[in-house]
Design a binder for these strands. Structure first.
Length: 437
RNA sequence: CGGGGCGUAGCACAGCCUGGUAGUGCGCCUGCUUUGGGAGCAGGAGGUCGGAGGUUCGAAUCCUCUCGCCCCGACCA
């Protein structure tokens, strides 16, 4: 993308409404624009990041055996009246009427709908287990939206729903999602810690919030430093290996991690002092086993092997995808701007032509740009060097290729790594090799 | 939902108290100079002062209503 043709607007000044760093940077770097309270339009750079985050979430859900569907944003009130939540949900739910005065709503979540859909096809124990997910815009009419997309009213969410014949099966589904979540966040370069959450009336320990560690997070968290060094990618841990997955789960849940509300000082004392970490975090995911709550109320049952009807055990698993974009910035920024991890960057490389019009500079830049047709932003504007440096730092591209008359005359490209600030001067060939490594 | 605040150019703001027909900085456009970390000079464009009603010879300014947005608290992916 050539900046002279791009819609990548950056702001020098911070809009007055932005309080937290991710919100400020998202506005300044031209990722989003507010259109109403808690509702945002995603501009090209923001949209690309959102899509990359979405894709990682999707790949890891698929890998865990979940299947993608897409349910609508608008739902009929009837569905919710059946589960009883139409009344219970309160004002958080945005209610609408269609032209025939039928009661509709903009979905805040999809338990009722997915259960109803699944009910239409599942008749036998052979149809289970299944895990269905979708990535869709939700609307919750927050009393007080704030912090940009961190707590917007409209937000992009991945929500998965599992259906199992038995409690044991549901527990396995739950463990699959826990592993998938840890892998998902790790791929984005984030430290995520599953923390036991309130399970409500069902009890047990099958509800976890996933907290991203970031200094600017809202909630205070306590956790075992073991979480920081774990590598969850280990391919040998398969999703269908029930005992192995249980072993993994037991290990993870045996390590201490709790939000302030769930903090247990006695158990905390049991963590070796050197491994105790207290920090700030942002909730980006929540997994939950809720048994037959919706299968029962929505009338879902299937025939078991013995012919008797069984009401499936269900769980739901959410990731706040749009919130993740903000969380990624909270976890990866400095005074100059965003520092995108490679896995989610809108573009991998920014090519800074420090002297547009200089034959050597132009030629070198064009060559480099041609090598990365969809992964580079080429700053070919007639701007001063300082402007380009600042914009590139602000927008946070993982790599900057700085090309000025001095180096260009010698065929040299200066590569800067945004994350570390490290710089090297290389020939074009070596620079290409390094960027492709 | 309780409490507070703010709506004036793309952004950040002044002007309002004490009415006289709108200003500053950044950004934008043109020219010249400059050119490795947000340049200098000169010229220029851009606003139904959130909206409606009222008071007045005259309203950004005073009054009423209304819409929107932000902050603190209670609540949440």
């Amino acid at each position: 993308m050539r900046l002279t043709r791009a819609f990548l607007p950056t702001l020098k000044e911070t809009p007055a409404e932005a309080q937290i760093v991710s919100h400020r940077l998202m506005l300044r770097a031209g990722l989003i624009r507010q259109t109403s309270a808690g509702i945002y339009a995603w501009l090209p750079a923001g949209w690309r990041v959102l899509q990359r985050v979405t894709q990682i979430v999707r790949e890891e859900q698929d890998r865990a055996g979940a299947q993608e569907v897409l349910m609508p944003t608008i739902q009929s009130a009837e569905l919710w009246q059946r589960s009883g939540r139409y009344e219970d949900y309160g004002k958080e739910m945005l209610r609408l009427k269609d032209r025939h005065e039928r009661d509709m709503l903009f979905g805040p979540t999809n338990e009722e709908m997915i259960t109803d859909i699944f009910r239409g096809y599942a008749t036998s124990y052979r149809d289970l287990p299944r895990n269905l997910y979708h990535i869709q815009w939700k609307f919750r009419d927050e009393v007080r939206p704030r912090f940009g997309v961190m707590r917007g009213r409209e937000f992009l969410m991945k929500d998965a729903y599992s259906f199992d014949m038995t409690v044991e099966g549901a527990q396995h589904s739950y463990r699959q999602m826990m592993l998938a979540y840890l892998r998902t966040f790790q791929r984005m370069g984030l430290k995520a810690v599953p923390m036991r959450a309130d399970t409500g009336p069902i009890g047990g320990n099958l509800s976890h919030e996933f907290i991203i560690l970031a200094e600017t997070g809202e909630s205070t968290v306590f956790y075992d430093s073991e979480f920081e060094s774990r590598d969850w990618a280990d391919a040998s841990l398969g999703y269908d290996d029930v005992p192995a997955l249980q072993g993994f789960f037991d290990q993870v849940t045996s390590m201490y991690a709790a939000t302030e509300e769930m903090h247990d000082p006695a158990a905390w004392e049991g963590v070796p002092e050197a491994r105790r970490r207290e920090g700030k975090g942002i909730e980006v995911g929540h997994i939950f086993y809720f048994g037959q709550k919706y299968s029962a109320t929505m009338g879902l049952s299937v025939a078991g092997p013995d012919g008797a009807n069984v009401v499936p055990e269900m769980g739901s698993y959410g990731i706040g995808v749009s919130r993740l974009v903000a969380a990624l910035i909270e976890a990866n920024h400095d005074d100059a701007g965003i520092k995108w991890p490679d896995a989610v960057a809108p573009w991998k490389l920014a090519i800074l032509n420090l002297k547009v019009g200089d034959a050597a500079c132009d030629a070198l830049c064009e060559k480099l740009y041609a090598a990365f047709p969809d992964q580079a932003v080429y700053d070919d504007r007639a701007e001063r060097a300082g402007v380009k440096f600042n914009d590139a730092d602000l927008m946070g591209f993982p790599w900057q290729a700085i090309i000025g008359p001095r180096g260009a005359a010698a065929g040299k490209v200066e590569l800067k790594r945004r994350m570390t600030g490290e710089r090297v001067e290389l020939s074009l060939e070596d620079a290409l090799a390094k960027l492709n490594a």
